[in-house]
């Protein structure tokens, strides 16, 4: 394999197919990841509540999201619940006014990490030709008979995406923590 040729091919492919990778592919990849995390989080929140409730039947259903949300809620100091209940606040009022607003701080960073993981996992969706980054590799490969070049190109994009998002999440997490231990 000739690295000079690969380099030249990548330049040519970039000129011709940049929109497929950067617009279509990245768009689908990010949307897929976002939908997965959002649906998982909403389902997870419901199940997390069920698991903490006294009703048995649905407790066996578990996923990474229920654990993220459940542990986020449980990480809020029990004293907060006791203070709220001692003021006569109901369980529901305590949850919505006191516990959940504080639990969000524990939950969001973990969900962000999950989002970054899912970005990489969405490459599996190319099996169904869904339109994500890996699908674009298949498209370009089909049109040009080049394999390694489009792969290198999406590898760079995957890396850039996860690297930038990890850094952003770090900043976000530090901002959330700033208000802690009041």
């Amino acid at each position: 394999m000739n690295f000079a040729t690969i380099g030249q091919n990548i330049v040519k492919l970039t000129a011709k197919y940049w929109d497929k990778f950067l617009l279509t592919g990245m768009g689908y990849t990010l949307s897929l990841a976002a939908i997965t995390v959002a649906v998982g989080a909403i389902l997870g929140a419901l199940i997390a509540f069920m698991r903490m409730s006294k009703i048995a039947p649905l407790r066996w259903i578990a996923s990474i999201y229920t654990e993220i949300i459940r542990s986020g809620i449980l990480a809020v100091d029990i004293g907060q619940t006791e203070a709220a209940r001692s003021l006569g606040m109901s369980h529901r009022l305590t949850m919505t006014q006191i516990i959940l607003p504080q639990a969000i701080k524990n939950i969001l960073p973990a969900l962000g990490n999950e989002f970054i993981m899912i970005i990489k996992d969405t490459s599996l969706a190319s099996t169904f030709f869904i339109g994500d980054l890996m699908t674009q590799v298949l498209v370009v490969k089909g049109a040009t008979y080049l394999t390694i070049e489009p792969l290198i190109m999406v590898a760079v994009i995957y890396f850039a995406l996860t690297f930038v998002l990890t850094k952003l999440l770090g900043v976000f997490e530090r901002r959330l923590r700033r208000g802690d231990v009041r």
Binding site: D77, G79, Q80, E82, A83, A84, L87, G88, Q102, R182
Partner: peptide
């Protein structure tokens, strides 16, 4: 409980 105020060792103010 509304009629019984309680004060805790660790304050438990809502941060």
């Amino acid at each position: 409980r509304q009629k019984m105020g309680m004060v805790f060792q660790h304050f438990n103010l809502f941060p």
